[in-house]
């Protein structure tokens, strides 16, 4: 933009006209500020306290309104007074550097990109861990944990979930009140849908850990001791054969990814009928990761 563009003269003129005002630069006759009461720390917090002369300039002390030079000198004196006041009040040592105060050069100036990367990573992590948190948070409220001896509910009392929509309407998404008749005994708080979701999630997680370790690829899942989550799920469902109905078919419109994925690949059926570790294992691995991993590559590419 300089001389190679032919604006060098213009820049010089602008700089001379605007950037070098007559008064301040190297002004030798900087008058001492008026009423210089020599109390440096008297009122340190007020930034415009009258200032003692800092450099012992003989006092001419014209009023700031007398002319541009005097006014500029007054402005400088005010700035110096503010400096002294802040320094004596300890402000210069005590206040922390905010981001906007950090002008360290060159490489650090690129820093604004790092938080973006961090934000993307945090978003990814929260999306990934979110499913775990839902499952883990649900564990504390599982019905099985509240009852010392989980007795299997009478099968006849537990309606198949397909019957629940029939009661509340054929397309009922299963709000909490419709799930009430599932637990007629009433000594459990009827788990709302979120709890049931958590139960099924927890089972899938438990199946991943317990069964995956035991049997590797997971043939012959019956040899593996059923994990606690599985027991709770069976307990909540009222029997192993009820698990697929308990977990599988429950379509809720609000939760498209889990509700849509589960009936499709028939997790519940696999978990119950074959009782092998594989299908829950696979689902547990792909379930939380699938939605989270997909948005992340574009995000990092954007960055």
């Amino acid at each position: 933009m300089s001389d190679d563009h032919g604006y060098g003269a213009l820049e010089r003129s602008l700089r001379a006209a605007l950037g070098a005002p007559t008064a301040t630069t190297g002004d030798p006759a900087r008058p001492a500020p008026d009423d210089a009461s020599d109390v440096p720390g008297g009122a340190p917090a007020s930034s415009d306290a009258p200032a003692p002369s800092g450099s012992g300039v003989p006092s001419g002390a014209p009023a700031p309104s007398e002319g541009p030079t005097a006014r500029a000198a007054g402005a400088e004196a005010d700035a110096l007074a503010a400096f002294r006041a802040a320094r004596d009040a300890g402000l210069h040592a005590s206040r922390e550097t905010r981001r906007r105060d950090d002008w360290t050069p060159a490489t650090d100036r690129r820093r604004p990109r790092r938080p973006l990367k961090t934000a993307v990573a945090a978003l990814f992590a929260s999306a990934t861990l979110g499913g775990v948190a839902v499952a883990g948070g649900g564990l504390g409220d599982l019905p099985g944990t509240h009852t010392p001896s989980p007795e299997p509910r009478p099968a006849g009392v537990l309606p198949a979930p397909t019957r629940v929509p029939g009661k509340a309407g054929s397309t009922s998404p299963g709000p909490p009140e419709t799930s009430t008749p599932i637990y007629p005994e009433g000594h459990h708080a009827p788990p709302p849908d979120a709890h049931r979701e958590a139960l099924c999630h927890a089972f899938e997680k438990g199946g991943k850990q317990g069964r995956g370790q035991g049997t590797g690829k997971g043939k012959g899942g019956d040899a593996v001791p059923p994990p606690a989550a599985w027991r709770r799920l069976v307990d909540a469902a009222g029997g192993e054969d009820r698990v697929p109905a308990f977990c599988g078919r429950d379509q809720r419109p609000g939760q498209a990814p889990p509700a849509g994925a589960r009936p499709k690949d028939g997790t519940g059926r696999d978990a119950s009928s074959s009782d092998s570790g594989d299908p829950p294992n696979g689902r547990a691995a792909t379930g939380p990761d699938g939605p989270a991993a997909r948005p992340s590559p574009p995000a990092s590419r954007n960055e």
């Binding site: 110096l80 006041a85 802040a86 402000l91 210069h92 040592a93």
Partner: peptide
């Protein structure tokens, strides 16, 4: 003058 200590 007040915030000089913050500057880096």
């Amino acid at each position: 003058a007040r915030d000089l200590g913050r500057f880096r």
